[in-house]
Design a protein around this nucleic acid. Structure first.
Length: 427
RNA sequence: GCGGCUAUGGUGAAGUGGUUAACACACCGGAUUGUGGCUCCGGCAUGCAUGGGUUCAAAUCCCAUUAGUCGCCCCA
C-alpha cells in the first residue's frame, strides 16, 4: 500500500506558510480598492472554445498546456489557464458594458492551471492575481494599471524591480512587422539555431531575444516593431510613457518584449525581479492592452487592458530580497487544568472566553501540567489560566502573564470580564 | 515536450556491498506528585521514493517508474 502524493505541479500551503498568502492577498485587495477596482469571481473552468478564441489557437497555452476534459454532458471544458478570458466573458455575458460606471475596473485572484513541466516558480496549479480595465482607451488607464502593478510590489517592500515596456501596435502594425521579420531572417535561416528556425514560423518576434543567436549579424539589422507603428500607435505609446514619467515610474523600453497570448496589442509590459537566486524565472508579472478581445468573445467593441501577477513568484521575490512580512503568530490565552473535574470546567471556560471574543486554546492530549505549560509557551500564549482541584473548590482561577511571569488569583465567576479587561490594551 | 542532477526519520544529514542505519534539531517521557523558556537522563526510521534485477549478501551496483531540482521551450 503506497500513500498518496498530490498531483505533479501542485502544492499544499500549510499553516506557517498560509499566513504569508493571506497577508499578501489582503494587501493586494486593499490596494485595488484604493485604485477603485472591484473584485470579480468567475468559475475555474470554462468552455474550451473561450480560451481557443480568447487566448489564441496558435499559442503554446492553448496548443499544449490546457487541462481540457469532456464532462458527462459531452461538453468540452477547460480549467482556466489565465484570468482575462473569463473576466471578458463575464463582462459580455452580464452586460457590464451597460453599467453607467465606465471604464469597468475589476480585479480577481485565484488558481490557474497549466500543464507544464514544474519548476521552482512554475506550478501546474498556481495563483494569479490580476486586474482588468475595460471600456477605455485613454493612455492614462494603461499607466494606472502599470502603476498599480508596481505599487503592489513596492508596497510589500520589493525594490529590485525592473519594468519593461513595449508597444506591439495595432493588428496591422503587428502583422506588417511579422512579415518584415520573416523576410529579414529567411536568408540566414540555416545559420540560426534550431529553436530560431522553428520560431521563425511560429513566432518570429521571439527570434529577436534568442540567447544563442544574439551575436549573429542579422540581429543588429533586424526590423524593430517600433519602426512599424503607425502614427496613432506611436502617439499612444508616447502618451503612456509620458504619464509614467510624470508619475516617476522608471521603465525600460524593450522592442523585443513579446507576450505569449494572442490578444495583446499596443501597450505590453512585464515586471521582473533583479534579485539574486531567481534562476531562469525572472518575470513576476505581465500584462498589456487587448483591444478587440471583447468583440472576439461576442461583445460590443470595447478596449481593455490588464495585468496578472503570480503570488508564488511574488513570495519568491520577497524571500530573495530577504523581506519578512509582519506576521504575528500568537495565542491570547491558554487554559491549563489538572484533574478530570477541572478539565471539564476548563472546557466550559474556554467556550465562554471564546464567546467573549478571546482567542483561547487548551490541552486535548492529557498532558501533565508541565507539558501543558510547554505547549502554551510554544503557542506563544500571552496568558495562561490555571485551574486545579484547589481553585475549583475555592471558586478561583490563577491568571499568569507569560511575559512577566506574574500571577494573580481571580474569582472564577469574573474570569471572562477580567480577561477582557486584561486584553483590551493589547496590540 | 527535450536534456542534466538528485531521492535515507517530522527536519537537516552521515553511511557508497557484509551482522542491531551515525550525529544534530524537533517531539515525547523522567529528574522536579500543581506551573514554561536552562540543565541532565531516556525514548523516537512501517528500515533507506516505488517496482524489478545482479549478488551468498544492497540504503549502497544496474534498469524502469514516480517525484523534486536546474537548463531549454514557454510563461505568471
Amino acid at each position: 500500500m503506497s500513500s498518496f502524493k498530490g498531483p505533479r505541479g501542485t502544492q499544499d500551503i500549510l499553516p506557517g506558510e498560509v499566513e504569508k498568502w493571506q497577508y499578501v492577498e489582503s494587501a493586494l485587495t486593499d490596494l485595488c480598492y484604493r485604485y477603485n477596482y472591484k473584485e470579480i469571481r468567475t468559475p475555474v473552468f470554462e468552455h474550451t472554445e473561450l480560451f481557443q478564441r480568447g487566448v489564441g489557437d496558435s499559442t503554446d497555452i492553448v496548443q499544449k498546456e490546457m487541462y481540457t476534459f469532456t464532462d458527462r454532458g459531452d461538453r468540452s471544458l477547460t480549467l482556466r489557464p489565465e484570468g482575462t478570458a473569463s473576466v471578458v466573458r463575464s463582462f459580455v455575458q452580464n452586460k457590464i458594458y451597460g453599467s453607467p460606471n465606465q471604464p469597468t475596473k475589476l480585479f480577481y485572484s485565484g488558481p490557474m492551471f497549466r500543464y507544464e513541466r514544474p519548476q521552482q516558480g512554475r506550478m501546474r496549479q498556481f495563483v494569479q492575481f490580476g486586474v482588468e480595465a475595460l471600456g477605455s482607451d485613454d493612455p492614462a488607464i494603461d499607466a494606472e494599471v502599470i502603476a498599480l502593478a508596481m505599487n503592489a510590489y513596492k508596497e510589500l517592500g520589493l525594490s529590485s524591480l525592473k519594468l519593461v515596456l513595449n508597444s506591439l501596435g495595432d493588428k496591422k502594425s503587428r502583422s506588417r512587422h511579422r512579415q518584415a521579420l520573416v523576410e529579414h531572417f529567411q536568408p540566414y535561416k540555416e545559420e540560426l539555431c534550431e529553436d530560431c528556425q522553428s520560431r521563425l514560423a511560429t513566432n518570429p518576434m521571439r527570434v529577436l531575444d534568442c540567447k544563442k543567436d544574439r551575436e549573429h549579424e542579422s540581429m543588429h539589422t533586424a526590423p524593430s516593431i517600433l519602426d512599424y507603428l503607425n502614427d496613432e500607435s506611436r502617439a499612444y505609446f508616447e502618451a503612456v510613457k509620458s504619464i509614467l514619467d510624470r508619475m516617476g515610474i522608471e521603465y525600460e523600453i524593450d522592442p523585443n518584449l513579446v507576450r505569449g497570448l494572442d490578444y495583446y496589442n499596443h501597450t505590453a509590459f512585464e515586471i521582473m525581479s533583479n534579485a539574486k537566486g531567481f534562476g531562469a524565472i525572472t518575470t513576476l508579472s505581465g500584462g498589456g492592452r487587448y483591444n478587440g478581445l471583447v468583440e472576439e468573445v461576442g461583445g460590443p467593441a470595447t478596449p481593455g487592458i490588464g495585468f496578472a501577477l503570480s503570488i508564488e513568484r511574488l513570495l519568491m521575490a520577497l524571500e530573495a530580497e530577504g523581506i519578512t512580512l509582519p506576521i504575528e503568530d500568537k495565542l491570547e490565552c491558554y487554559v491549563v487544568s489538572l484533574g478530570e473535574e477541572a478539565e471539564q470546567e476548563a472546557a466550559a471556560i474556554v467556550y465562554q472566553l471564546r464567546q467573549a471574543g478571546i482567542q483561547v486554546d487548551k490541552d486535548y492530549a492529557g498532558k501533565k501540567m508541565k507539558a501543558q505549560f510547554k505547549a502554551a509557551d510554544r503557542l506563544n500564549a500571552h496568558y495562561v489560566l490555571v485551574l486545579g482541584e484547589d481553585e475549583l473548590t475555592n471558586g478561583q482561577i490563577n491568571v499568569k502573564n507569560m511575559e512577566t511571569g506574574e500571577q494573580e488569583t481571580i474569582a472564577l465567576s469574573t474570569i471572562v470580564e477580567h480577561m477582557k479587561r486584561e486584553l483590551k490594551g493589547d496590540a
